[in-house]
Design a protein around this nucleic acid. Structure first.
Lengths: 241, 241
DNA sequence: TGACACCGATGTGTGCAGACATCAAAACTC
DNA sequence: GAGTTTTGATGTCTGCACACATCGGTGTCA
């Protein structure tokens, strides 16, 4: 199946804007985009509407379609995140996601210990032990898969739909780490145990212990990654009154 | 200026879907929506495309426009949040936001202590002291305004654009609290001091102290609010493999 | 003469109507 | 039951009328 023209138009413009090829303030005309992408007006109009809802562009009569600065983008939109990960700002995006994850996961662990359904708790324990085995045996691909499953279950078990929604992005950061060669062949022994600690604390409903163990995992992964992206420039979003 | 038809169509359908009037699985036809909203096909199509990008509906040839379940919605989209706050699920949405905020703010305080630009640190200190004064004098509206400004500055100062983007939603939760009558006339004395502590810790670059003080604020507000929404049902989003 | 307010021309997004293309669900045939 | 045809919905294209922000010219007043 060839993806729809609508989808391709969004993808084309989205990657170019987020990638910086179309700088903020740049003005385009609908007609010009029709010619450029060789599609009809309706396709362009529908694509622009979507980009507008993501905060990537704004339309003004008599002016055209204006590209907005990054401070106006919706940084939580999965598409925007994907485009940023595919751009030069990949490092900065990974850092942002990692920081968000480091903040959220201990809180999610705490909530999961209080609210998660029983079957999920059991699965979490199983996965934690499987992770430990895979880590010991140096089965890197299987470990990565289990790692993603573990953290997905944790976020899902919190019962907070915003936490749960970060699953997809978390998977990105984890796979991103391996792509960047930041993943050792044998994960740190203590980190493996901490995963088990989180799972068992949740299983027995010990919120404080779950948070603490999760916090240890996060602090370790953060300190592990921080070296690689210290050179990434930070973006300060001005306060809108 | 009358808001555009496009905007009105999105608003109409968005509120109805998020509000539960159009249940998941419900199928609509573009032609039927044209008649119902008395607008042309292009308006409907552009609106549907936007709702599609928010995960509220999907379109299938030969079937129509199908409403998707809440687990498919983008819970971070400002519009979705706004519609949810206007619906029966207002309580659950406020709780989710409060939990997110409680997780993020201490992390943001830590980052701000390390990265925030100097002028922002100074402004933060000023606002913290102004808050304390306003709190002492029982100036509730002014206190609320300063409170929002304080937390906006904090999130913005973290240098993480995802944290910074939560400002708008945070403002909602704070104003939401007053609307719900959860705001005492005289804010708790210790909480006022903690705000000052956060600001001064950030000003002198003490990340650990900033986090601790912020964490105390969050724990207090959470325990304050938790009574009111314990009856709200939690939504567990299934893990997608 | 110069500054300023007004006003009409212009160009671009917005909204409308109708046509044909495409493709997957559903009905049909064997 | 498997394969084929039909059908009905979205996808795409096009021409047109309208709304309205911007720009430039015109007239008025100091």
């Amino acid at each position: 199946m060839t993806t729809s023209l609508h989808h391709r138009a969004i993808e084309n413009l989205g990657t170019r804007i987020v990638g910086g090829n179309l700088p903020a303030g740049h003005v385009m005309l609908a007609e010009q985009l029709e010619d450029e992408l060789k599609v009809s007006r309706s396709v362009i109009r529908e694509a622009v509407r979507v980009l507008q809802s993501l905060g990537l562009v704004e339309t003004t009569k008599r002016v055209g379609i204006r590209v907005l600065p990054p401070s106006r983008w919706n940084p939580f939109d999965p598409q925007v995140i994907r485009w940023r990960l595919a751009s030069d700002a990949r490092g900065a995006q990974l850092r942002s996601l990692a920081e968000l994850r480091a903040a959220v996961e201990p809180a999610a662990a705490e909530l999961a210990a209080e609210n998660a359904p029983a079957p999920l708790r059991l699965e979490l324990v199983d996965v934690a032990y499987a992770m430990r085995d895979a880590g010991h045996n140096g089965e890197v691909p299987r470990f990565l898969e289990l790692d993603i499953q573990f953290h997905s279950l944790l976020l899902s078990g919190s019962g907070n739909e915003m936490f749960a929604n970060l699953m997809g992005q978390v998977a990105e950061t984890l796979t991103g780490r391996t792509v960047h060669g930041l993943m050792p062949d044998h994960p740190h022994e203590a980190a493996l145990q901490w995963h088990v600690d989180v799972a068992e604390a949740i299983a027995r409903g010990d919120a404080a212990a779950a948070r603490d163990a999760s916090d240890r995992i996060m602090r370790r992964t953060m300190s592990q990654m921080s070296d690689t992206w210290t050179e990434q420039p930070r973006v300060f979003i001005p306060v809108r009154h």
